[in-house]
Amino acid sequence: MADAFERSFTELGETGAAFSVYHKGDLVVDLWGGVADPDTGRRWQADTLQLIFSGTKGLATACVLLLVERGVLDLDASAARYWPEFAAAGKGAVTVGDILSHQSRLPGVRQPVTDDDLLDHDIMAKLLAEQPPETDARAGFIYHALTWGWLVDELVRRVDGRTVGAFFADEFARPLELDVWIGLPDDQHDRASTMLAAPGFLLDAQPASNDPLAVLTHNPLVVPDSPDLWNSPKFRRAGLAAVGAFATARSMARFYACLAAGGSLDGVRVLQASTVELGRRERRQGISPLWGSPMAYGAGFELATAAQVFGPAADAFGHAGAGGSRHGAWPDRQVAFSYAMNEARAEYPDRRPRGLLTALHEAVADRPAGGRPSVA
């Protein structure tokens, strides 16, 4: 694993990154290196925090699943049962499960918004509650890059009173001792790396045509000055439930190690095993109508597809982050992993996580399930 990680730097030009693996509840790989801030030369440290973009969705998913377990939310119930205003403009039949699996037909916000609007949850939730669902047939299965977070966060707030960030901190981060923040406190900002956009990333992220749906789904955080926003104190504080978490790879791997073990780790149970399985149960799979790539979702988690975003394991689940990060688990092998980096790339498939996860799979593939992998 160390050799594979080193190749990311020597052969693939990695800037700064960390990669961690848990096996059977033990931390067996913990690697970091490179530069956290190219402007100052600050090196990546063991406790460097990294923006993981949509890796945040896996954390928010766990929050919803815990509320389902407690009987507060029902995946098959109308979202309007908990958020009455959401029924406006013909959305009364949209279920909580539809929202989690990117089937709410709200892949973008129609009204023009500013950066400050994007970081104001109340504004964005109100706009989405008022907005009609898209009638384009393709909209029923398009990745809701940002809107997913405002929808999920509002559901959590309506039934619990806490934000997703506060809920995760109380119910998962503190009990499991995770260095994970959805809404980074000011006194932690100096630990965060500087997020970079590789040449071509911002250009490739623009809508490729005048297709109205493609334009609508364009992530408004990916514009020419995006890195300025990503690295700003106001973005770090905002705690966007879709794309705003900061974490160490070590802690993200620990989070998924808990899920891979059925929701309990080191004597601390945060979810029932049946609840984890509910989250992994496939709710939708197919080919993205805009990207042409395979997509499969449970109740919020991304699932294994032919694209092998989470490595070769057929039972893989987790969530990837824009630009390359990968966070997930292979339950049959009791393996959990996280790759976090500070240079976002448009390369698909990204050779950095692909190489790491391929090497990891080779390390455990020939060992009986439950055996200890030969990594350290």
Rank of each mutant, 00 (worst) to 15 (best):
S20N: 05
H102W: 13
L216N: 12
G370H: 09
A304N: 09
P368R: 12
R351T: 07
L184A: 03
I123K: 15
V94R: 06
H361Q: 10
I52F: 06
D315R: 12
Y348K: 09
V159K: 03
D116T: 14
V375D: 00
R254Q: 09
P132Y: 11
S251V: 05
S251P: 05
T358H: 10
D98E: 14
A320F: 07
D153M: 05
G90P: 01
H102V: 14
A18G: 08
R345C: 10
V152S: 09
T358V: 04
G321Q: 04
E302C: 11
A80L: 09
A197E: 03
R345K: 11
G41N: 11
S325H: 05
Y348L: 13
W150Y: 15
P133C: 08
R81K: 13
Q50R: 11
R326E: 07
D211P: 02
A329N: 02
D30I: 02
W230K: 11
S338A: 15
V96Y: 08
G370C: 08
D115T: 14
G244V: 07
G298S: 06
D115V: 14
D136P: 03
P107R: 15
L65G: 02
N210Q: 11
L290M: 01
L356H: 03
R367F: 09
A340S: 13
K91T: 06
T163A: 03
D74H: 10
C63E: 01
P207N: 05
L221G: 12
R191F: 07
G161T: 01
D225Y: 14
V364R: 12
V159F: 06
A304P: 01
L176W: 01
H121N: 13
T61G: 06
A205T: 08
Y143G: 04
V152E: 05
D190Y: 08
H189R: 15
L178H: 00
H23F: 03
G90W: 07
E6A: 07
A304R: 05
L202P: 07
A62V: 04
V270L: 03
A197K: 03
L59G: 03
D136N: 12
L66V: 01
L240R: 03
R254C: 05
T163K: 02
L127M: 14
L303H: 04
R174V: 04
R281D: 12
P227T: 12
R105M: 13
